[in-house]
């Protein structure tokens, strides 16, 4: 009798994991399959699709472009969203509901509407259909992903008192932000950066409409391949996953390295 809920629980978990993992595994297998349509497992295995993808002249260009846009979106987000969130939390808490509401807007406005509106408003150089406009659009689009974790982290610590105690010790706003607030909301900043990076890296609609062929991103290339050969598209998807995971590891590793020296220096003393 006691076992039953446990069995049910395990079954639910297994089903959920399968639901999440199976498509990814299938994509991986498909990317190295010679032919996989009427059989249960592929008829043979090959790395040909990866070769084709790597050899494509646009492969490295689109990958670089996607990196540029994603990293720029993360940096702009860090530069604007984090200080703004901090400022609203400490100085104008009454504006927090308004900011919360603003941060939901990107979810409510379809990417198509956002892209077309931006194209019409910023129809003049140097913005018109430029990577700058794409990056700006991506920042707006991914804003909530940076805002939410940062805002939650700020709520988890006593920002107000920490700020005041740093102030009374003679620190200026920049020192407070960099030395006191940022390290204490680092988990939020990190997960925000990761979410923004991943979202923007996989973003298709905005890139396709704003820059299109003039500044192709990786997802545009991927979509082009799905029309030609699903197996090459699968190989590109796997590369895309890998990039996202590598980026996550790099960010986590980078932040870990940033903190270590102080601890080591202290250990030596």
């Amino acid at each position: 009798m006691k076992q039953r809920p446990l069995v049910l629980q395990s079954l639910l978990v297994a089903l959920f994991v399968a639901y999440m993992i199976l498509p990814i595994i299938a994509t991986y297998i498909f990317s190295i399959a010679t032919k996989w349509d009427i059989t249960l497992m592929p008829e043979g295995y090959t790395l040909e699709w990866y070769q084709t993808a790597f050899d494509h002249p646009y492969f490295s260009i689109t990958l670089t472009n996607s990196f540029i846009v994603s990293i720029a979106a993360v940096l702009v987000g860090l530069l604007f969203i984090v200080p703004t969130t901090y400022w609203v939390h400490t100085r104008v808490p009454s504006a927090k509901p308004l900011l919360d509401l603003l941060m939901i807007l990107p979810f409510g406005i379809p990417a198509v509407v956002l892209a077309l509106a931006l194209i019409r408003v910023y129809a003049f150089p140097p913005f018109a259909r430029s990577p700058f406009l794409l990056i700006s659009a991506c920042v707006i689009f991914s804003m909530p992903f940076m805002y939410r974790p940062v805002s939650n982290s700020l709520m988890a610590i006593d920002v107000h008192t920490l700020t005041e105690s740093a102030l009374s010790l003679g620190a200026n706003t920049l020192q407070i932000l960099l030395r006191v607030i940022a390290p204490n909301i680092l988990p939020g900043i990190l997960s925000g950066s990761l979410l923004v990076f991943a979202t923007v890296f996989a973003e298709f609609t905005l890139a396709n409409l704003i820059t299109g062929a003039s500044f192709k991103t990786f997802p545009i290339l991927l979509v082009e391949f799905t029309r030609r050969d699903g197996r090459i598209a699968a190989a590109l998807s796997v590369i895309s996953f890998t990039v996202a995971w590598l980026a996550s590891i790099a960010i986590l590793w980078g932040s870990g390295r940033g903190r270590k020296p102080t601890e080591e220096a202290l250990g030596a003393r």
Binding site: E164, A166, L167, L169, R179, V180, P183, T262
Partner: peptide
């Protein structure tokens, strides 16, 4: 931050990311 008043709060308000040495040194370092 220009008054030279040292303040102690009810909620301690030590910087959780810094050890004791860095907490005490903070005002002098900045």
């Amino acid at each position: 931050n220009k008054r030279g008043t040292g303040m102690v709060f009810q909620a301690y308000a030590l910087f959780p990311n810094m050890n004791v040495r860095d907490n005490v040194a903070f005002g002098l370092e900045v």
